[in-house]
Simulated assay, not measured.
Amino acid sequence: MTTRSCPCGLPEAYEACCGRFHSGAAAPTAERLMRSRYCAFVRQDAGYLLRTWHPRTRPERIDFDPRMRWTGLEVLETDRGSAFHSSGTVTFRASYRGGSLHERSRFERVDGAWVYVDGEFLE
């Protein structure tokens, strides 16, 4: 039996990678949170996305486009965001069928847990 790697691009199986964060474990870094959020978009897990969104910028709900098919994630740069920081950024390119999204996301810690604040779209 072959185990597929996690949609976030790391070689681990989903259950051992982003699945554990989706099930309640805290992401240890801003990058791991960003990867787990990408995976949540792939899996259309609105609950996880809302739980990991900063309270001051969180929308009331998330509406997924049923035609959207995410096809890959490339982390381009991280700045801060480790266990020793209270904020950080992750620049990434998320590919989807027909195009890609290039973003620099900002993350902060709230009550010790990493959360997504907002993002800036890049060219």
Rank of each mutant, 00 (worst) to 15 (best):
I62N: 08
D111C: 02
L101I: 15
Y14G: 08
A27H: 01
A26L: 13
A13L: 05
P55T: 03
L33F: 04
G19P: 01
T57F: 05
P7W: 02
E108Y: 00
D79E: 14
S5I: 13
A13Q: 02
G98D: 09
T52P: 05
S36H: 01
S95F: 15
R37C: 05
Y14P: 01
C18F: 00
V115A: 07
D65L: 13
A26H: 05
R106C: 13
H54S: 04
E120D: 10
L101R: 06
R32K: 07
R56F: 01
G88M: 02
F92Q: 02
G119T: 06
V75H: 00
G99M: 03
V117T: 05
P55A: 13
T89D: 10
E31G: 14
E77T: 07
Y48L: 13
R109M: 14
S23D: 15
A113L: 11
A30L: 04
T52E: 10
G99R: 00
G98A: 09
D63Q: 12
W70I: 14
D45M: 02
Y48N: 12
L73N: 11
Y48C: 12
G72E: 06
E103V: 09
L33M: 06
F121C: 10
E60L: 15
G119M: 03
Q44G: 08
E123A: 15
A13H: 01
F64T: 04
R43N: 14
F64V: 04
Y38V: 05
M34E: 07
A26Q: 09
R61W: 06
D63N: 13
T78C: 13
Y14Q: 07
Q44R: 10
D79L: 13
D65R: 04
P11L: 04
V90K: 02
E12D: 09
R106K: 10
R106E: 06
G119W: 03
G98R: 04
E77V: 07
G81I: 01
G112E: 02
L76T: 09
Y116I: 10
F121A: 14
R35W: 01
Y96E: 08
R67T: 15
I62H: 02
C18L: 08
V110Q: 07
P66V: 09
L73Q: 06
R20Y: 07
V75W: 00
L73D: 09
W70D: 11
R80H: 05
T57A: 06
R43G: 10
F84W: 08
Y96Q: 09
V42L: 04
R43K: 14
S82L: 10
G47K: 11
F121K: 12
P11C: 06
S23W: 03
R43C: 14
T78W: 00
R69S: 13
